[in-house]
Simulated assay, not measured.
Amino acid sequence: MNNISILGSGWLGFPLAQVLSEEFSVKLSTSTNEKLDRLRGENITPFIVDTTNLNDEVDKFLCSDILIINIPSKNIDGFKELIKHILNSSIKKIVFISSTSVLKDETSPLLEIERLFKNTNLKITILRFAGLIGYGRNPAKFFPKGKAVKDANAPVNMIHRDDCINIIQKVINQNIFDETFNCSAPSHPTKKEFYTYCAEVSNLPIPTFDLEENSNPQKIVESNILISKLNYKFIHEDLMKIVF
């Protein structure tokens, strides 16, 4: 049985650990003591790991076969220090959760962190997730009254948490490493269409829309390589059918 360590126990990390714990022995990190008791009750071994202040606890946490990195930090120095610990551990494979935001910003710290991991001898698959939705994340809530949705005719790139977890599972179970995948649902309605739908199905106020075109318009993110390599079929293919 593979042992898996998951760095980050937030909106994605915690439910991911719950799913993987049905199949693997799972260690899960949190940066706060308050979460420890809750995590212990989930057939998960919890650890306190703070990437801004690493100590001996991280070496125990990294005593696994596979590491999934799922934290929002863009602290390059912190990741350099983490990599030193990883290279001295039993970790041989990494799933690194990144973002499709790196596709439009070549100076992104996140892109630099991707490169740091690629420059090691570790087998790493980078998953660049599009906008995360589902389970409390409703895009209609991003625009309180008075805040307009800019570039409203641009396409959206989104992915549901169910698909994020399923993709990670398939990468591990199919042993698909040394890859980089852009991960976005196949449908791409406009912001106006999608945010209106999100508001209507949730009985929320419909946002106001700025139809002026952006000088640097958002492009559609395709997941063709992901679909081909993993033989993947999205759980939530049509964004206009998601129930929030």
Rank of each mutant, 00 (worst) to 15 (best):
D162T: 14
A130C: 10
T125G: 08
A148N: 11
D163A: 09
P144I: 03
A152E: 00
V156H: 09
Y195I: 10
F117I: 12
G146L: 02
Y135W: 01
A130N: 05
S187L: 04
A199E: 07
F181M: 04
F177V: 06
A148D: 06
I172M: 14
P189M: 09
I167C: 08
P139E: 08
P109R: 05
Q174T: 08
A140S: 13
L110V: 11
N182F: 00
A152S: 11
H160V: 12
F181R: 06
P139C: 11
S184N: 03
K123R: 09
F181T: 01
A154D: 11
K150I: 13
K191I: 12
G134R: 07
I172Q: 15
T180M: 05
Y195G: 02
F142L: 14
V149G: 06
N121L: 14
P155Q: 09
L127V: 14
P155N: 13
I165R: 12
L111T: 11
L116E: 08
I133P: 02
I113Y: 01
R115Y: 12
Y197C: 01
N182E: 09
L127W: 07
A148S: 15
I126H: 10
F143P: 04
F129C: 05
E193M: 10
D178L: 13
F177W: 00
E193R: 03
A154W: 05
P189K: 00
C183V: 03
I168K: 05
I133G: 01
K150Q: 10
K141C: 10
I168D: 05
S187V: 01
I159D: 00
D151A: 15
F177Y: 04
A140R: 02
F181H: 02
F143T: 12
N173A: 08
F117S: 03
G146W: 00
P155V: 14
P189C: 08
I159L: 15
L110N: 15
N119H: 14
R115H: 13
I172L: 15
C198G: 06
D163L: 11
F129Y: 15
L132K: 00
A148L: 15
I113G: 04
F177C: 08
L127K: 00
T120Q: 01
K150M: 09
A130H: 12
E114G: 10
D151N: 15
T180R: 02
Q174D: 12
F194L: 07
K192W: 13
V156N: 11
I165D: 09
F142S: 10
D151L: 02
G146C: 05
A130P: 04
A148Q: 07
P109Q: 03
T196N: 06
E193Y: 04
